[in-house]
Amino acid sequence: MGWGEWISESKRYIIGTLVLGGLLALVPFAINFDMYYLLILSTALLYGVYVVAWNIIGGYAGQLDLAAFAYIGLGGIVAAELFTIYGVTPWVGMFVGAGVAMILAAAIGYPTFRFGIKDVWYALMSAALVVILNNIFHLPELLGSLDHYLPSKYGWMYLRFPTYENLYWFVTVTLVVAMLINLKISHSKTGYYLRAIREDELAAEALGIDVRKYKLLALMMYAGILGFMGYVSIVIQGTYSYHTFDSPNSITIAIMGIIGGLGSIAGAFTSAVTLKIIGEYLRSTLGASIPGIHLLIYGLLLIIVGIFKPDGLAGVWVSLKKKFVKKNVRGEKK
């Protein structure tokens, strides 16, 4: 679809996304630039970007990808190393990181889709990818066992700041961009094709859809966004090491995507941000006495969603709308 057609047909959603971004940008003023809350909110919005990106491969294309931190870690470490060793600004490094993540996605995705690995096998394979990278980067020739620190340089040039509001705003902007990318995909031929593949691969193929090509495209777009954000993840963490390839959090991203509702941009955003904030809150209040309580809550929510609302938060919204507005409601946004 051309840009003009897209803008005229999705005006409502584009404006909605921009308004949401504007409101989010005002939040630091409302909380008086409190450093602790800004850190939590930056992390929550960063997870918003991750889950919105996951929505492309998991929500539209229907592939249960558990490898988020393979791409986040690789992209982030590439940008961080370029910065630390060669002094390359992260503004360049982040794009290089995104590129490297996309190359990894292509290298993994091509044979995977070529040999028809899907469903639970795809999930296992992608989960293994994080573990493999974790082990590879643990080698003494690469990162070894040490924590690595970014150089103590601050300012917009390096995306590192003594306080968190600038980083928060940067993440807000990337979130808006990630949501607009999703919106564009959703309303384009690619979006229709990916949803068809999610629903029934064989039927999609028989309608002339090059299933492999479109799955690979979805995987690469997802990996590209994650790889780009990797550096921000490292900035928030403060350090990077082989631990940056984080298996449990890769699974958390998929869980958030499923709770949000497959293929729903608003659902992905809402689920990621609320769950991350609840998770951080629980960790800070009960974390010492009951470690891992937030994971328990995520698990319970996943079960509840699985039983009562398989379409996730987006499904709850649709059925509420159906209850109050007595007319046909679309299951998927137009």
């Binding site: 229709y192 949803r195 068809a196 999610r198 629903e199 029934d200 064989l202 039927a203 497959l262 293929g263 379409d311 679309r330 299951g331 998927e332």
Partner: peptide, 11 residues
């Protein structure tokens, strides 16, 4: 082999 979570028109 329907596209269950897509509308008739989208399908």
């Amino acid at each position: 082999r329907p596209f269950k979570k897509m509308t008739v028109l989208d399908t």
